[in-house]
């Protein structure tokens, strides 16, 4: 989880120089999405065993953002948070059902 949030200068340059940057998400929006995802994932981790996909998706998000692709970065950060939510959903359902499969 200890990931470097600072973006390389080259990524910033790439955004500034990109003609489409006016339409696309910017670094602030990405960082906001990332922080939201991180807090959701941490919260889920206190309650259930996470999937191994959430942190991997956050790393992919960071890679996309480092290339200046903040839209992709936001999409992946949101997906990472969603995977944490789904892990919680399974655990909640299983809390009711697991004992059905214990041989009696």
């Amino acid at each position: 989880m200890k990931r470097n949030l600072y973006l390389p200068f080259s990524a910033l340059l790439a955004v500034l120089m990109s003609p489409a940057s006016a339409m696309a998400a910017d670094a602030d929006e990405y960082v906001a999405a990332l922080e939201k995802a991180q807090s959701q994932i941490c919260e889920a981790a206190t309650r259930v065993q996470l999937w191994n996909t959430s942190e991997a998706l956050l790393e992919e998000a960071a890679e996309a953002a480092a290339k200046g692709n903040f839209d992709e970065g936001i999409k992946l950060a949101n997906e990472a948070a969603l995977h944490a939510e789904l892990a919680v959903a399974t655990a909640v359902r299983e809390k009711k059902n697991w004992h059905l499969y214990v041989p009696k």
Binding site: E79, L82, H83, L86, T90, N97, L100
Partner: peptide, 13 residues
């Protein structure tokens, strides 16, 4: 089938 062994390919993305 709640006791299926098949992963939920859509629900779990």
């Amino acid at each position: 089938n709640p006791h299926t062994r098949m992963p939920p390919f859509g629900r779990n993305r």
